[in-house]
Computed example of a mutant assay.
Amino acid sequence: MRQFKKILIINIFGIGDVLFTTPILTNLKIYNKDVQIGYVCNRRTVSVIEQHPCVDQVFIYERDEFNEVYKKSKIAFWRKIKAFVQEIKNEHYDVVFDFSMNTFTGFFAWMAGIAVRSGFDYKKRGIFLNKKILLEGFDDKHVVEYYLDFLRKFNIPVKETRLSLSIGEKDQQGALDYIENKNFKKPIINIMPGGGASWGKDAYYKRWPAENFAKLADKLIEKFSVDIILMGSLQEKELCQQVESLMKGRPTVLCGKTNIMQLAALSRICALNIVNDGGPLHIAVSAGSKTLSIFGPVNEYVYGPYSREGHDVVTADIACRPCYRRFRRASCTHISCLKNIKIEDVLRKVENLL
C-alpha cells in the first residue's frame, strides 16, 4: 500500500475497546515511523490515549454532550458538529479507521474530507465508508484480531500484538511512594470487585458476588500471607465498602481514590490483580500486570485478556454460557455462570499464578 502520512482512529467505546486498538497504533508506527496518528475517543478514555507515545493528537467526542446541545438548540447542535468536523478537517488526514460501527462517525469522517474511510459495516451502518469490513458480531476470535484485520486489509504487517499503556513517571513514582508510605511488608494482591462502566446499570451481570470476594480475600491472607488492596472507580466505592465490611481481615480501600493511570501504576506493583470482566482487567493487562479474571456471560476467548501470558481466567462450566453474543446479553435471572464459580476454583488459579 502507499504510505499514508496521517491516519485517524475512531473508537468512542469504553476503556477496554480503546486498549484493544493499541496494537494497531504500535504496528502503524513500526510500518512507518513518520506517520502521524490522530485519535477520536470519549472523555472517559482520553487519559488512556493522550499519553500513548504513538498518538500525536486526540479529539474528544462525547455523545451525551452533543445530545444536550441538541435538546437546547438544533442550530447550536449543528454549529458544534461543524466546529468538531472542521477541527479534524484542518489536520488533512489521508485515511480513517473507524471502529465505532456508527453511521454518524462515518458521516463526520466524510464531512472532514478524509478520502479513505475504512470501518466495520455493522447492520448496514457503514454508508459513508468506502473500505468496508462486514461485521455481524465479535464471535470466533478475540476483538483485537478483528481490529488487526484493518491492517491486513491494507497489507500492513502485524508484528506486535500486545496491548500497551504508557504510565507517566509521576503516576508510577506516586504509586511507589504510596506503597512505601503505607509500609506494606507483604506481597500485595489487588482485588477489583467491580468491572468498569461499560454495562451501566447492568454491570452486576458481570460481577462475582461481593461476599465471595470477601471470603476469597480472607483466604488469601490466611493461605499466602498477603496484603489486600480493593480498587475501583468512585461509582464502585459502595461495592468495595461492602466487600470490606464482609471481611475478617483489614484491606486497604482505594475505590474512587485513583484515576485510570494511577490504578494502572498500582496494579503493576501488585503480585496479582483479581478482577471481573471489564475495563479494569484490560488496564492491568496493558500495564504489564499479572491478572486472574472472572468471566460470566461474556466469552473470555473474545473479550478476555490478550494475550494469555501471565494471565488466567476462571469460568463456570455451564451449558448456557457465554450468553452475550453479537453485542446482546440474553435475558437471565439466575446468573449461574458467576454464582457457580466457587472460591476454591479461584484459589487454585491464584496458587498457579503466584
Rank of each mutant, 00 (worst) to 15 (best):
M261A: 00
A330Q: 06
F120T: 02
Y31S: 14
L281K: 11
I156G: 00
N259A: 01
K5D: 13
P53M: 03
N352T: 14
K215G: 00
Y61D: 02
C41N: 08
L134M: 00
Y147N: 15
P251W: 06
Y31K: 10
L163W: 01
F99R: 04
A319Y: 10
K219R: 15
F150C: 11
V302D: 04
R268V: 01
K153Q: 09
H311N: 12
G304S: 05
G288P: 11
Y31I: 05
G249S: 13
G196W: 01
D121N: 15
E309D: 13
L292W: 08
S233Y: 14
L134F: 01
G168Y: 02
Q241T: 09
P23H: 12
L239F: 12
I24M: 13
I81V: 15
I191H: 10
K342G: 01
K201W: 02
A264H: 02
N155K: 14
G279K: 06
A287Q: 08
K124Q: 06
S47Y: 06
C332E: 07
L347S: 04
V55S: 10
A112R: 12
N90H: 05
C54E: 12
H142F: 07
I179A: 04
S166K: 14
S336T: 13
Y301H: 08
K72A: 11
M231I: 08
L135M: 10
L28E: 03
G288R: 09
N102Y: 11
K290V: 05
A265I: 01
G14S: 13
R43S: 15
S267C: 13
D94H: 13
R321Q: 15
M101T: 12
M1R: 04
G256T: 07
D140R: 13
H282V: 04
F107G: 07
S198R: 04
K185P: 00
L347F: 04
V40W: 05
Q241L: 15
R325A: 06
K290I: 05
D139S: 14
S118H: 08
V350A: 11
V18Y: 01
W110I: 03
E62V: 00
M101L: 15
E91W: 03
N130I: 05
N102P: 07
Y122L: 01
E211N: 08
G296N: 05
I60F: 01
F184V: 03
V346W: 04
C255Q: 08
W78R: 12
S293K: 02
F77R: 09
L347K: 04
S233N: 15
Y31M: 07
E87I: 11
R79T: 02
